[in-house]
Amino acid sequence: MGVFNGVFPIQAGKEEDARAFAAETFGARRPEFEAHLARVGVTRETWALQETPMGSLMLVWFEGDVEKAFAELATDDSEYHTWFRARVLDVTGVDLGTPSDDPPPAVLIDYRA
Rank of each mutant, 00 (worst) to 15 (best):
A23S: 10
A23M: 08
E24K: 08
T25Y: 00
T25W: 00
F26C: 05
F26W: 11
F26V: 06
R29T: 07
P31H: 01
P31N: 02
E32Y: 00
E32C: 05
E34A: 11
A35W: 00
H36K: 05
A38L: 12
V42P: 06
V42E: 01
V42T: 11
T43F: 04
T46P: 01
T46W: 10
W47C: 09
A48I: 09
Q50R: 12
Q50K: 10
E51M: 09
T52L: 14
P53V: 01
P53R: 05
P53I: 01
M54C: 08
G55Y: 02
G55K: 01
L57A: 09
L57I: 03
L59S: 07
V60W: 02
V60M: 10
W61Y: 14
E63P: 01
E63H: 13
E63Q: 14
G64N: 02
G64F: 03
G64Q: 01
D65W: 04
D65L: 06
V66R: 13
V66A: 04
V66M: 00
E67K: 15
E67A: 15
K68I: 02
A69H: 14
A69W: 09
F70Y: 11
A74F: 03
A74K: 07
D77F: 00
E79C: 04
E79A: 15
Y80K: 05
H81A: 11
H81F: 07
H81V: 09
T82Y: 00
W83L: 09
W83Y: 04
F84K: 00
F84V: 09
R85K: 11
R85L: 08
R87V: 07
V88T: 11
V88S: 04
L89P: 03
L89Q: 14
L89H: 09
D90K: 12
D90P: 03
V91K: 05
V91Y: 06
T92D: 10
T92V: 11
G93P: 01
G93Y: 04
V94A: 07
L96Y: 09
G97H: 07
P99L: 05
P99T: 04
S100G: 11
S100M: 07
D101G: 15
D101S: 15
D102F: 15
